[in-house]
């Protein structure tokens, strides 16, 4: 029994951390621009494809892995920046429905582009030998790469929090997020901040795509899957809340792994049960308002 609980705990965190890495960019973009970006899943997918392309399907060494991740993140960040300038910047003043529709249109467009560029065959990225396989801890088998992902997720969570709370970029970002007009009236380059945040959010999606690609079939079906899970996390955590996204991702991961272990019948629905419960009991999400108005 203890073994099962411990295993579910470890696997829950291992499930949740990659979800956080994907959702972090989504919640960042929502927090600053109030844009629910459906195209985030496409950013994720492009990250996975680019990572595959850079490494040619084989992860040979840790330095290649890092180079691949950097290229995936930077390229997807650039795509995000172009999307911001070409599409979203013109729509910030409009209502949510308009931006939502535009982001959906972008998702479909990027989906189509991915299919044009990479075709329809699924790809596979091999695991770095050092990160392949598993080990035993307290009688529970733990995948080595899960530990890597948990580490990367933790570093990202801390890094993003420090960036938003402790740096002048973070101050400016929070100011723009809360009151773009006042920020501009103080002389802050709100447009530059929005561009940077959008690019950063997209880059996080690209990074996530590269990081998680060794565990997935890299094909055009990736985009919708991750967008649904990320939206659920952002809703549960509170729109725009970075801390909320981390906790929601871990909660959803744990809920999933405990459901799978102890109530397999509910496993497929646990995500939706969580979203429904949160919407009923705490519509603003676990962490309430966006990080701009209170502490992150």
């Amino acid at each position: 029994m203890f073994g099962q609980i411990f295993a579910a705990l470890v696997s829950g965190i291992a499930t949740g951390m990659p979800l956080f890495i994907v959702a972090s960019g989504l919640t960042l973009i929502y927090g600053v621009m109030r844009v629910l970006n459906f195209a985030h899943g496409a950013f994720f997918m492009i990250g996975a494809f680019l990572f595959y392309n850079v490494l040619g399907g084989v992860t040979g060494s840790i330095s290649l892995l890092i180079v691949g991740l950097l290229i995936a993140a930077l390229s997807v960040g650039a795509i995000g920046a172009v999307s911001e300038v070409a599409v979203f910047r013109r729509l910030y003043a409009r209502d949510h429905t308009t931006t939502l529709l535009a982001s959906y249109a972008l998702l479909l467009t990027l989906d189509g582009l991915v299919q044009q560029i990479w075709g329809v065959s699924p790809r596979s990225q091999t695991q770095l030998p050092a990160f392949a396989g598993s080990f035993q801890i307290l009688g529970v088998r733990v995948a080595t790469y899960d530990v890597v992902l948990i580490g990367v997720g933790a570093v990202l969570a801390i890094g993003l929090t420090l960036l938003l709370q402790r740096t002048s970029f973070g101050q400016t970002t929070r100011a723009v997020a809360h009151d773009q007009t006042m920020a501009r009236a103080l002389g802050l380059h709100a447009r530059g901040v929005q561009l940077a945040v959008f690019a950063l959010g997209a880059a996080l999606a690209g990074l996530a795509g590269g990081l998680i690609s060794p565990l997935l079939s890299i094909d055009p079906s990736l985009a919708p899957t991750f967008v649904v899970q990320s939206f659920a996390i952002v809703i549960v955590g509170g729109l725009g809340s970075m801390g909320g996204a981390l906790i929601a991702a871990l909660l959803i991961g744990l809920l999933d792994s405990f459901a799978v272990t102890f109530f397999p019948g509910f496993a497929g629905f646990s995500l939706y049960i969580a979203v429904t419960l949160v919407l009923l009991l705490r519509p603003q999400g676990i962490f309430g308002a966006a990080f701009a108005s209170r502490e992150a």
């Binding site: 929070r174 100011a175 809360h178 006042m182 501009r184 009236a185 002389g187 709100a190 701009a292």
Partner: peptide, 23 residues
């Protein structure tokens, strides 16, 4: 643009003050 005007040396204190609450 607003930010350029502000940078040129005009400061505005709106009636609702608009202090950034999280900062």
């Amino acid at each position: 643009r607003t930010e350029t005007i502000a940078r040129s040396g005009v400061a505005w204190v709106p009636p609702d003050r608009r202090i950034f609450p999280a900062l």
